[in-house]
């Protein structure tokens, strides 16, 4: 259903673009909501340089990105997973950025550092009170993403053996996770490093803080790659866009917007 919709939107985009005088080549990229805002920025800059190519960016989640690239509904799929699922083997994958997953708590929370085992305990429901972690005597509110989220699957893969507690609150985007943690003094969640702000705080993991430097140095443990996926080797306008994202200029944009460049 979603794919049909996607195809329809692409179709409309092509018609609209074809309608305005000069013929423009249309490229559609769909998938990861964490990478979407960055992709939009990159597409804007790319189109300023290459006015005869129209790039459309759509969300939908990593799982949808892989499906869309496989079915051809979008030429480029965007996925941010530690490990691509088996069906993505048929696609050509290019790593264009890396993204740290920050473990976030409320600003009022005195806990500053968590070990991976502690994070696992919290999300498994074994550690249920902040007291056990050196915080106040309050029950922990675990906030997680829905099962199809790339952020969640990456998080669970790196932390390992996470069987999410049934008490966990489920939110369906990085943004709503952030709001929930900002509002709830006892909450803990995780979100893309690029979406951190001063209203909540990221704890250090194993003593390492979630900053660009630590990720680039390979010290911060919760990192996942961002892939652009194409069916077969990218050609034409598709290749031009992917090349631009990988170019020094594209990588600089990625870095300036808060993500971590691939190289």
């Amino acid at each position: 259903m979603r794919q049909t919709l996607l195809a329809l939107v692409c179709g409309v985009a092509i018609v609209v673009n074809g309608g305005c005088g000069k013929q423009r080549t249309a490229v559609t990229a769909a998938g990861s909501t964490a990478f979407q805002p960055f992709a939009e920025k990159l597409a804007e800059q790319f189109m300023a340089k290459q006015p005869d190519i129209a790039v459309t960016i759509q969300g939908g989640g990593s799982a949808l990105g892989i499906q869309a690239a496989l079915s051809g509904a979008a030429q480029i799929g965007m996925a941010d997973l530690v490990q691509l699922p088996p069906e993505a083997q048929a696609l050509t994958a290019v790593v264009v950025a890396r993204d740290g997953i920050a473990v976030v708590v409320n600003n009022a929370n005195p806990v500053k550092n968590l070990a991976i085992e502690q994070i696992r305990g919290i999300f498994n429901g074994k550690i249920r009170n902040w007291k056990e972690l050196g915080g106040a005597d309050h029950a922990i509110t675990v906030v997680s993403r829905e099962a199809g989220s790339g952020t969640r699957s990456s998080f669970e893969k790196i932390v390992k053996d996470v069987a999410l507690t049934k008490d966990a609150i489920i939110q369906d985007s990085n943004g709503t996770i952030r709001e929930t943690v900002i509002m709830d003094a006892n909450a803990i969640g995780y979100l893309s490093h690029g979406l951190l702000n001063e209203k909540l705080k990221a704890v250090t993991v194993q003593g390492t803080s979630c900053t660009t430097e630590e990720v680039v140095a390979g010290r911060y443990p919760l990192v996942r790659p961002v892939y652009l996926l194409t069916k077969g080797e990218p050609t034409g306008a598709c290749k031009a866009f992917i090349d631009y994202v990988c170019s020094a200029e594209g990588q600089k944009t990625i870095k300036d917007s808060g993500l971590i460049p691939a190289k």
Partner: peptide, 25 residues
């Protein structure tokens, strides 16, 4: 949260929420 509520203060997931949350992927 997918669990049987024990009090009105528990977090729950309704049938409609389940469809809407997971249909995307």
């Amino acid at each position: 949260a997918v669990k049987i509520p024990h009090s009105a203060l528990d977090s729950v997931r309704t049938l409609t929420a389940n469809i809407a949350l997971e249909m995307g992927y």
